[in-house]
């Protein structure tokens, strides 16, 4: 009896798969599971469907999957870029915005030699056309990285950071604001500008962004340490305490307790 059940069950699988593909999620599930090869096949089947919405979304999915199919070749990156370009130019919907984001992303990180000018151009256009979209808001901090580290390397770092500060005007979400502040703080440390200049950015990042646990713990220590050196002992104590509360087992607790004691003793 059981083998019969198994056979019947197996025969139902393709039907179930086709049904799942119908809502367009199957390929995305495969991509979320890091299975681009299977996703390509799934999106490939959906591309053949007549429904224009499904077709467009499937082409977008297919291009995204191409970016991750191993081994990644320059030819398939170019194929993906061609699809994204067509999708981005033909419409203004979510697919078009996503396609524009990936045009920037390909130029930034998927080519063998990055094309920073092109990446910057695509991100800027995305932000100008669809500022409030999740794609544009995610692109802001990535554009900031290009501006600080890749474009115009002859300009003094302070100028590049000041340019990035202007991007804050386009940040609609707290995540985007927080990320931009984090980018600027990290650049101040990297270029060895006066470290105190990083403090307001770190405070803003902590306030705005939903930082990942590992990033947040570093930001809390940085705020406390910079506040202590600036003589802002109340603020330092507050952030040390917050850090210790959130990271009670962090090995920095020992040295932090020394710093707290030093502040209390007026050192």
């Amino acid at each position: 009896m059981k083998p019969l059940v198994l056979i019947l069950g197996l025969s139902l699988v393709p039907a179930a798969a086709i049904a799942a593909e119908g809502n367009g999620n199957a390929g995305w599930k495969e991509l979320a599971d890091y299975r681009p090869e299977q996703a390509l096949q799934t999106f490939g089947r959906q591309v053949a469907l007549a429904d224009p919405a499904i077709n467009r979304s499937a082409r977008f999915g297919r291009a995204v999957a191409l970016l991750d199919r191993q081994p990644v070749t320059p030819a398939q990156i170019e194929e993906a870029r061609g699809i994204f370009r067509e999708l981005a130019e033909r419409d203004v919907d979510d697919v078009a915005q996503g396609a524009r984001f990936f045009l920037g992303r390909i130029a930034q990180h998927h080519l063998q030699v990055p094309d920073d000018e092109a990446a910057s151009r695509e991100f800027r256009r995305l932000i100008a056309d669809h500022e409030a979209s999740i794609w544009a808001q995610s692109a802001l901090s990535r554009l900031a990285l290009i501006q600080i580290y890749a474009l115009n390397p002859q300009a003094p770092p302070q100028e590049r950071i000041a340019e990035v500060e202007k991007l804050l005007a386009h940040a609609r979400t707290s995540s985007a604001k927080g990320e931009l502040h984090l980018v600027m703080a990290n650049a101040i440390f990297f270029y060895r500008l006066p470290a105190q200049e990083a403090l307001p950015h770190l405070l803003a990042a902590e306030q705005f962004a939903r930082l990942e646990w590992s990033v947040r713990s570093e930001v809390l220590v940085q705020i406390a340490e910079l506040s202590r050196s600036a003589g802002q002992t109340e603020q330092a104590a507050r952030y040390y305490a917050l850090f210790l509360k959130e990271n009670p087992r962090d090995p920095r607790a020992y040295i932090i307790s020394e710093h707290v004691a030093g502040m209390a003793a007026g050192k």
Partner: peptide
Amino acid sequence: RHEDVAATALLKLAPNPGELEALRLATVT
């Protein structure tokens, strides 16, 4: 690059994508 792809997939699978603030890319750090 892997995370770019996975982040897009997670956005597409999100029950309420309009409520998301950002793609879940590799951290900016």
